[in-house]
Design a protein around this nucleic acid. Structure first.
Lengths: 151, 151
DNA sequence: CTAGTTAGACAGATAATCTGTCTAACAAAA
DNA sequence: TTTTGTTAGACAGATTATCTGTCTAACTAG
């Protein structure tokens, strides 16, 4: 057989992690589109993932999402243009802006949670609740260990 | 506590999958840079991951990587400019081009395998070989189940 | 031999990131 | 209180990585 590629017919850990992740994301965003939010894109998840109910500063969101404030400002700005957030001045610090979900933004937030839970449950059904619990436990361990090794 | 975010203090499956994946990737590409290949970027992995020793057509690479042939042509072209591949006419089909690794490209290919294996082994050390085997087994199951559910 | 399909090129657009510089506002220290 | 340093974000500009659409040359099948 002359079909050798970098994976050498073996499942790499990277591929094993990436495939379900991408499926999960594709599923959630396809269904979000079907629910009437076609303009919310995966990149926006950095905002929805970390935004707090009272609103969050661009800088804080950028820190959470591990990206530059310029990049986060771009994402927040695009969500503002699409009507999912308002950007208001922070009363506690006149330099700062708060990114705050609009009603439509809240609807997306709720939908994202619901769709994520549904997708995760579907996965759990597929492989069994017990194995899913085991998977989560190992992944959590691995994440913690990697984090520790980086410090 | 007023710290509620979309994750509601819970580890989402997406985050659990994403974090180790990104760490693995960052580690491999940082070390690749340290080895003298600073211009090979994660996006190029679509090429290195699927390219065959005899070379591969742009279209085939695009299919494997699940992207458009235009996008793959862009990546192949950028690797050509950087000296990691040559793009030669396919003798079997005058329309087609073969993307073929140069010596330098082969060096990257080898390094990627070595670094990937090292990174995976490091992970296995962290959580234990047995748990890593279990992780792989469950992820493989999950991947298969998701694939099946999509067809 | 003609009709349809495929491979890739070319043109153009957009999304999602980055770096660098600048100003206003805040915070801390003298 | 005034200066000095830091922080928040804005603005400008660049790059990377993707997309769609159209076109031509070459292959393939009827």
């Amino acid at each position: 057989m002359d079909n050798k590629t970098i994976s050498e017919a073996r499942d790499t850990l990277g591929a094993l992690l990436r495939k379900p992740y991408e499926s999960l994301q594709a599923d959630v965003y396809a269904k979000l589109e079907a629910r009437g939010f076609p303009d919310v894109r995966p990149a926006h998840s950095s905002v929805f993932r970390y935004i707090r109910p009272q609103g969050s500063r661009v800088t804080d969101l950028a820190d959470s999402a591990q990206m530059t404030k310029q990049s986060m400002a771009y994402l927040a700005g695009s969500l503002k243009d699409l009507g999912y957030v308002r950007i208001v001045s922070d009363p506690d610090d006149k330099r700062a802006k708060l990114v705050v979900l609009t009603a439509r933004g809240h609807a997306v937030w709720d939908a994202l949670i619901e769709l994520r839970d549904a997708a995760e449950n579907a996965c759990a059904e597929m492989i069994g609740r017990k194995r899913m619990a085991e998977l989560r436990a190992i992944l959590k361990d691995l994440g913690t260990a990697i984090e520790a090794s980086q410090r």
